[in-house]
Design a protein around this nucleic acid. Sequence first.
DNA 1: AACCAGGACGTGA
DNA 2: TCACGTCATGGT
Length: 239
Amino acid sequence: MCLSLDILMAVESKLEQIYEWLLREYGPQGWWPVRCECAESGYHKENFAVPASAKGRWEVCAGAILTQNTAWVNVETVLERLRAQELDDPETLMLCNDSDLAQAIRTAGYHNQKAKSLKNLAQWFLSPGPKTRVDLLSVNGVGPETADSILLYAFHQPSFVIDAYTRRIFSALEIVNMSWKYEKIRTLFQANLPVEIECYKEYHALLVEHAKRYYRKGTSAQCPLRRVLGKNLFDGDLA
DNA sequence: AACCAGGACGTGA
DNA sequence: TCACGTCATGGT
């Protein structure tokens, strides 16, 4: 009978129930974590802000590149260094030569690639005209997740971000399959959630927080969301 | 001391 | 199309 409940519950209902549970459990995350502009240094979890300035929007863009397969704590360090070296805006960054820029961002890893990606993205950022997903995806170094992060958190466009954590969580809950491609998963979310930008932002941020607790590689704690969806703790593949 | 991190791209089959 | 190697440093 647990199985029948699982079948009867529509995807739409599941996605919303999971969101409500995460929000109650962890509270609003307030992503994207931009540096508080009134603070002299450091990132303040209490003061995450929506970037209102071009510089703030660019910080989201740069962070989206720098955090590719990289822990955010290392990105913070680099963003601070870029600010200290006055490379925290796209105009001056484009004037910097590749090797100097690579050195400035070295501690975030993949520095040679990311230096080029940042320059490519800076050119996109400064180019006139609407900021479209298609144009963004044509930038070398910007894949679908980076593109959606930028569109959602820097430009307030309703594009749901799918990352490795999202895949792990929802495949464990048997809502998506690990073999599904990025666009298919993104379409599933967008087709089954109200088109609300703030909800898109919160949802992705909450999923990251949840995954860090239950879905890191090497840990296999029982995910409490299984219960939320009415799954029997004794069935499934973890026995 | 291996192993992982809020991926993306180029390559060959 | 798609699986697989490569890119690289810092934290645990």
